[in-house]
Design a protein around this nucleic acid. Structure first.
Lengths: 126, 126
DNA sequence: CTCCTTGTATGAATTTACTAGTACAATAAT
DNA sequence: ATTATTGTACTAGTAAATTCATACAAGGAG
């Protein structure tokens, strides 16, 4: 499992790392039981601070995806993150962006809601 | 034209103001030629800084929606419907892209429809 | 028990976004 | 011309988010 951070993208690196781990889990590259690199090792590898890695692991643990044991390491739990769940997150983010844009353009929540409903019907008619 | 800022929402007030002005233009409450309140007056009215108002006016001017003339004031420009219509087209295109992407990810039309419906409800609950 | 490996708590440095206070500049009005 | 009215530049303060350096704590290995 290889991670690739972009330090100039403006996207916080802890977000990037988290996404990539989740992606790996969704794709099956990180199967349940797998040990992740220790916070120190990964921190050195990626040339970032150990706490930044720890933050990612902690958040993922809080989401029920990882388990950490002091002195031992961090491991992938049995997760039901399939492609679907991961992709749904991505889609929801994009939807949110779309909504925000629509609001900026002066559409009311009701109108946006209508647009979505309209599209929902249109899509289901295929 | 009345503006209503929420100082506790966490949403920057200049964003709120900008949205409300755009909303007014989209609704026809601010017709082309109308003079907006001076930055000072509006600032006092809303109990914010004149620069914050100025920022909003500037950005809207940059978007081609307002014109400011020093010593005179700020005025609503001809924002033709074709512009609005164009924006709607853009939104619809983006929605279509979203749908296509979802389908590429393996979602069924029903699932996509549900996602849209869910969001529609979420948006209208704001 | 002692040491090593692991994650974590704490606090600070840094950056960025937002808002405000004050002084300035440009145009209009007289 | 002079003054008033309007928008703007400049600067600073504040808050939040991100990342880091350092020291600590908990569990594992010998």
């Amino acid at each position: 499992m290889k991670f690739d951070l972009n330090f100039q993208s403006g996207i916080p690196i802890y977000i990037q790392l988290k996404e990539q781990i989740k992606y790996g889990m969704a794709r099956g590259h990180l199967k349940p039981g797998t040990q992740l690199p220790t916070v120190r090792k990964l921190a050195i590898d990626l040339r970032i601070n150990a706490n930044t890695v720890s933050r990612v692991y902690s958040e993922l643990e809080h989401e029920g995806l990882l388990a950490t044991r002091k002195g031992k390491g961090t491991f992938v739990l049995d997760h039901n993150i399939s492609h679907q769940r991961h992709d749904i997150e991505v889609l929801k983010t994009e939807m949110e962006n779309l909504v925000n844009k629509a609001r900026e353009l002066g559409f009311t929540p009701d109108e946006i809601s209508s647009l979505f409903s309209e599209w929902a019907k249109r899509v289901s008619d295929r």
